[in-house]
Design a protein around this nucleic acid. Structure first.
Lengths: 371, 371
DNA sequence: GCATAATGCTTAAACGCTTAACCTTCATGT
DNA sequence: ACATGAAGGTTAAGCGTTTAAGCATTATGC
């Protein structure tokens, strides 16, 4: 089997010049209707596939984009990768992945590697608290709308607002927010949103997992049961991962969800729908985010060429923030003291956290799965 | 800023020919020690980065590999992507991702797209029950050792064996295996391993989530509490995702883990270490698997060239299977009736599954987090 | 001391594509 | 009738690299 057909094969077969064939395929030069059709037919017949390498060398464009995730191990990565790949593919671009496990320096190394590999532009979901400097090539940053230099992101603040309102409507007046650490814009936006929803309407406390783990080791209990005793009726985690941690810890402590307390998450990660109780959470519109990021990137690539200073033009339409969607499932319910079905919930009596062998009353779960 | 320096710039600056510079950089032709050093110095000085496009055009090798995951949304994807990217990068290759969400046909489309993009070879983690046909280019398949055409994979069967033995040692004699559906070689291997461990030493039943969801809807309860009443003391899920589902369902039903029953998973997914109780599971050695897959692929690429019939040579050393590692955490403990610390565990009394408002005794969790 | 070989470099072609420039041919406006 | 322009092509250069072949020059064998 001969190796792949090229332009010259088609040209020879039809007795025309390669340039004409090239023009016909790209629809750029001046080629008569008929010849154009004939060429495309022949191309199909020979199974012609353009050589990206040849094209890249000639045009200086590889038609490949780089994707750099700060934390490629994050469970959100699949969604990102899938959406970005899809959008890029639609636009005729391939996606090269860059691993930046580890620190910030690794992140820039990853970016550089991708550039050396010839990526026309880079999509970055940066590590917390990182700013992407000028890398001499178009970049689209997906972080949070409040991050300077951000290109597109979900409206995390509004997401927080919605989850806050949801809990508020359910009657919760004392909630604990669970975050990892305070140097992530995404988390801070979400938290700010929740706070805004509760402004003066309820009491909020903050739990930083990062801090607790620093003193008690990774995977340590978060002491949530004690908070429940102190009156907290809802836990709003800024990630489904933390929500999961909360749910299991509470359940292990004999607390019923959503009977006794509610738990909400963020991101609608893969397990959100299958755990018991299934998780109420906020979902990003990855498809749209990816589309916009890619569109921005490609527009920069195609017009800009060698433009590197992002301060040059005000980046097309500026930064867009995409609404998030509230997914109500089983893990959120009416606050204790606001009986759902006429029955009065028994108050929690005595300390339950330190001594799990105590007998706890379990309320029945009344809600059904909705999706 | 001038665009990137190329061979010709270096050649001009030193008054030599491009060919010499090329030889010096690649160390292939005949170049004197001194001149070689001078050239490399100049290259560094000018910030020379070889043009992959030029090289690709000249050599016919893009130095790019394609990565196709059947289910890119699977939580294992990050680990795969990271390991593959790392191994490929070490070998001087980039990794292009292919999205094959959806059916088997989408999988071949993804593979084709990557080939059209010029990938020198493809790493495939195929969809259950798929066989990758001849695609005219080197392929490395990561599925299960029992799959025909498999290149490298974790030793899932042995993994099952180990988890089975672990439960056996803890005194469990009646376990339920939780799987998704029966057409996955990986799952079947794992299950076979567990079965082998228990051969005639205990009772095993099988739960297929797929079947249950087909009749009761996605995310439906699996009825595990009833199984506990019937005497099951351990649940061995073939994926951490299912294990998670089991743990939450059991906890919600008022059953203590590992006090009343044990639950184990597979794959050591991201949440395994942070949920309560943390999850006992089996981990694949992704790094090694990726290394071997990439090495195989590259060896095929570099020697084979246009060889397409895999039946030609017996594929180097044949298919390798990499041992899995048992990670013991909190979710597995001694079987009921085999008191861990002198204390006799109370037997479960009466039906607990259908009526969750029943008051259940909770045993204390005695084990500490170990990692 | 002369054929032979090794060494160090250059020339030139090739990879497949794009694109500017050029050359016919034919239709058009004046 | 003749300059002008458009249409439909062709030629040729160039993108950056590799690599076979060629050509001096110097070392080696006998």
């Amino acid at each position: 089997m001969a190796s792949r057909a090229n332009l010259s094969d088609i040209a020879k077969a039809l007795g025309v010049s390669v340039a004409t064939v090239s023009n016909a395929m790209s629809g750029k030069g001046r080629v008569s209707k008929e010849l154009g059709r004939a060429i495309r037919e022949k191309a199909k017949e020979l199974g012609y596939v353009p050589s990206l390498a040849g094209r890249a060398l000639s045009t200086g464009r590889s038609h490949v984009l780089g994707l750099v995730l700060a934390d490629i191990g994050h469970p959100l990565f699949p969604q990102f990768a899938q959406a970005i790949e899809h959008a890029a593919s639609e636009a005729g671009y391939g996606v090269l992945i860059g691993d930046s496990r580890g620190d910030i320096e690794a992140q820039s190394r990853a970016i550089n590697r991708l550039i050396e590999r010839g990526a026309d532009g880079i999509v970055v979901v940066p590590r917390h608290g990182t700013r992407i400097g000028d890398i001499g090539r178009p970049v689209a940053v997906i972080d949070s709308p409040s991050t300077p230099g951000n290109t597109v992101a979900a409206d995390h603040r509004n997401g927080g607002l919605e989850i806050g309102r949801h809990l508020l409507e359910l009657g919760h007046r004392s909630v604990a927010i669970i975050g990892l650490h305070s140097d992530s814009s995404v988390q801070n936006d979400r938290i700010a949103g929740i706070r805004e929803a509760f402004a003066s309407k309820g009491e909020i406390r903050l739990i930083w997992i990062g801090e607790m783990e620093r003193s008690h080791g990774s995977g340590c209990p978060l002491g949530l049961v004690r908070l429940v005793e102190e009156g907290v009726t809802a836990f709003a985690a800024v990630s489904d991962l933390h929500a999961l941690r909360a749910i299991t810890e509470l359940q292990q402590g004999g607390i019923s969800i959503p009977g006794d307390v509610s738990v909400t998450g963020f991101d609608d990660l893969i397990w959100a729908g299958v755990i018991a109780p299934s998780l109420t959470t906020m979902r990003m519109d990855m498809e749209r985010i990816a589309e916009i990021a890619i569109a921005e990137l490609i527009s920069q690539i195609e017009q800009g060429g060698a433009r590197d200073a992002p301060s040059d033009l005000p980046a097309s339409q500026g930064q867009s923030s995409i609404p998030m969607e509230l997914i109500v499932r089983q893990s959120s319910g009416p606050a204790l003291g606001l009986p759902a079905s006429g029955e009065t919930a028994p108050a929690l009596t005595g300390p339950a956290s330190s001594n799990m062998s105590q007998v706890l009353p379990l309320r029945s779960t009344t809600r059904e799965g909705s999706d």
